[in-house]
Amino acid sequence: MIDRRLADLVPPFLLGLVFLAAWELVVRAANVPAIILPAPSAIAARFVVSVPTLAADFWQTIKGVLAGYVLGCGSGLVVAILVDRSDFLRRGLLPFGNLVSALPIVGIAPIMVMWFGFDWPSKAAVVVVMTFFPMLVNTVAGLESASSMERDLMKTYAATDWQTLTALRLPAALPFVFNALKVNTTLAMIGAIVAEFFGTPIVGMGFRISTEVGHLGIDMVWATILVAALTGSAFYGLVAAIERRVTFWHASFRRREA
């Protein structure tokens, strides 16, 4: 099984290598100026030299990402459970939440910078708003996802609402909750980086990108983007790994034993 998974990784890995090689070749052969497109080797060199700066940027941004992610997802989950008690509230909040989820929420970044200052709390605030609604909408849908038969079963036990929630509806909602958690990893990164375009102390990935673009330090921009990509993938991968452990029973993961 491990062999099979490794074998699945070979083609994308090869394609990535070919792509990088072609990029390097084209840049060298055509003498593309570094302010337009630096070669992968140049980006790698810049990355190695700039590790301290990149690390400082990373820590600055990740503070806003994580604080906002935990607060946004946490409050979305709690509000969803509260809303779930009332059919009226659910019918009113769900279309509202769906609408807001589709809006360009990053636009509130300048307002949050005004309210909470240049440092990471304002980025966290943007992330809170961006991650809250997907979590709310998904959790509410997830709490509804238990089948009527499963609910009837709880009714035949004369289970209380609280027992039905903890024993049936919350576990049944977990796949939906994790869906939101995964989507929100990317939204949190986007929110924090874009918010930094609107103002930050002189550190942070979004700050680095916007200033280096101004100085035409394109290799540094690419190095920062590499960090952002690695961070985003690792964050997503971590949540996906937790999901696999917690919702191992879900149809998308389980494997029948022989």
């Binding site: 089948s147 038969m149 499963e150 009837d152 079963l153 009714k155 035949t156 036990y157 004369a158 024993a167 049936l168 576990p171 977990l174 919702t247 029973w249 879900h250 149809a251 389980r254």
Partner: peptide
């Protein structure tokens, strides 16, 4: 009778919780 749990109910499907 339901509140006093006087019966057990078996549904058309097993309705076992997968978790």
């Amino acid at each position: 009778a339901r509140l006093k749990r006087r019966y057990g109910y078996v549904f058309q499907a097993p309705a076992l919780y997968p978790w």
